[in-house]
Design a protein around this nucleic acid. Structure first.
Lengths: 118, 118
DNA sequence: ATAACTGTATTAGTGAATTGATACAAAAGG
DNA sequence: CCTTTTGTATCAATTCACTAATACAGTTAT
């Protein structure tokens, strides 16, 4: 994991992003146990409340659930994960195309740009 | 022009974005005169200072220049515009590919997503 | 039962960023 | 020349968000 934080954006947001990506991409398996609030907070050198906040966001999205006093776990709802993954992909594409359009690029040119290098 | 502002992001940032896109895409011709601070501020119902701030940012990027007491004008440096346009395109592509990669999509799939519909 | 581990709630400090009111400065143009 | 139009500078208010300290609560395991 590459736990380097911007100074630009809130830490908790970046935590959510990373964790969310790890879940959506299957990096954290369905139903698996996550580290505890304090454990991860210690590991990543962030305040436990900040960690907690990140987890709460994931919980609101339904990506994790809590068994009080026992820990947090990745959801077992595969559909949710697939749907979210597709939704984010669409948003990402939408943003990309909009900005390229505003810059005056044709769809042809967009594709070329995507194909280029790495 | 579609001058609708998010509540999420600062107004001046959104002004910069819009104006910048209009310049980079050639919507505002090279060397053309821009509306005055107060004029645009009135038109768009924003505070003159907010407008001023947006213009300053554009000036820092070299996209506009000022003739004091006479007004602001779009740069005549075509290279700068072309370079910036290409730079933003690259950034946009980069962000897109990174986020799609994190979501676990292959380049093939990225291209498919871009091709789909609109 | 008690220590150690979970998550939760509440509240405050701090700091920063955005917006807005107002006054200044300089040139243009009638 | 004096009114109008341009950009500029300064400073205050307010709001907002993030982070942090600290105390609470409930299971589990030894």
């Amino acid at each position: 994991m590459n736990w380097i934080f911007d100074n630009d954006r809130p830490i908790y947001v970046q935590l959510v992003e990373q964790l969310e990506m790890d879940i959506l991409s299957g990096n954290y398996p369905l139903g698996s146990k996550l580290p505890s609030v304090r454990e991860l907070a210690d590991l990543l050198k962030v305040n436990p409340n900040t960690m907690q906040r990140a987890f709460l966001e994931l919980e609101n999205k339904g990506l994790v659930f809590t068994k009080r006093t026992s820990g947090r776990f990745v959801t077992e709802n595969k559909n949710l994960i697939d749907d979210l993954r597709e939704e984010y992909a669409k948003k990402s594409v939408g943003a990309f195309k909009k900005s390229m359009q505003q810059l005056g690029f044709s769809e042809e040119e967009m594709l070329d740009h995507v194909k280029e290098k790495g």
